[in-house]
Write a protein that binds this DNA or RNA. Structure first.
Lengths: 154, 154
DNA sequence: TGCGATTTAGTTGCATACAATCGAACTGAT
DNA sequence: ATCAGTTCGATTGTATGCAACTAAATCGCA
């Protein structure tokens, strides 16, 4: 069997599924006037308002090169405010505006609407998500810890 | 339970896993001097040389807006050649150069190297891939078919 | 045989991703 | 206090993705 067959690659399965998922979100996010990554930022802020750019980046696995322009757009859109931390002037804290908080109500039914299209049961989704999280952990360990070829879980 | 909890979202699991996978490929692709999407194009061409841009796009779920500049870069890099089809002058066929074909040998061990980092068994990978493919199908059906709820093929 | 609809690649504009780098702000050992 | 080292967010440059549109070529039906 060809080890380089496209359809045998888990990487391509992930890549295709991830983009298909983003495309599936697009029509649901359009009424909120936010993009998919902006929606992810909102998910974090709706859980924990006032996080630093750094904490946001840790949570979403995105760096400042991606987040800074994205957050500036959200600020211009009136969804969040950005302010230097008084304690530590290096830190920029992101806070929801009234408008950003209000958007949560319009987003509440998005998960349900999507699940309707999944063709999967809720437990199957949870199990898949769990597998993906495990895979992500393994990949990150293998990538950043590339000095460690022994396969240790650290 | 909060339906908008970031960690409960399958979408984020996919998004994070996909990017972690791309990051894991980076060091393995660096010696080949290709990016991850360019590697996917090569996987297709190593299977079927001389495909049209359209067929390539169908296979990878990418449109000409993404593929055209990417293929032009690969042409400048000497990996592929692009030529109009004599039969149908709208079609551009992508063919591997000698250099592009030779690269396959250097790529042969990439899948094995990555599996070593997965922390998953081969059957588990195959099963995960299968689930992801099914999910992708469902999402595409739900997305493209959303404008047309009547079941028309147009 | 015309000719409007369709198909194909290319182009443009916008929004991520991410590596590399920068400058300002903080930290800790001296 | 001081200064090398670190952390933080911003900036720059490159490479996707994708929607919307264009131009050329082909198709199909009256």
């Amino acid at each position: 069997m060809n080890p380089l067959a496209l359809d045998s690659q888990l990487c391509f399965g992930l890549y295709a599924a991830s983009r298909a998922m983003t495309a599936a979100y697009a029509p649901l996010l359009a009424p909120l006037k936010v993009t998919y990554p902006q929606y992810l930022v909102l998910l974090v802020l709706w859980e924990t308002d006032g996080v630093s750019v750094r904490a946001l980046g840790d949570r979403l696995a995105l760096d400042s090169g991606t987040l800074t322009p994205l957050l500036q757009k959200m600020e211009r859109a009136g969804l969040v405010s950005r302010a230097r931390d008084a304690e530590d002037n290096r830190v920029v804290r992101i806070s929801l505006t009234t408008s950003g908080r209000a958007l949560k109500r319009k987003a509440l039914n998005i998960p349900k609407e999507l699940v309707c299209h999944f063709g999967l049961t809720l437990p199957a989704i949870a199990q898949l998500r769990s597998q993906l999280n495990g895979l992500t952990q393994q990949l990150r360990a293998a990538t950043t810890g590339s000095t460690n070829t022994t396969g240790e879980t650290s």
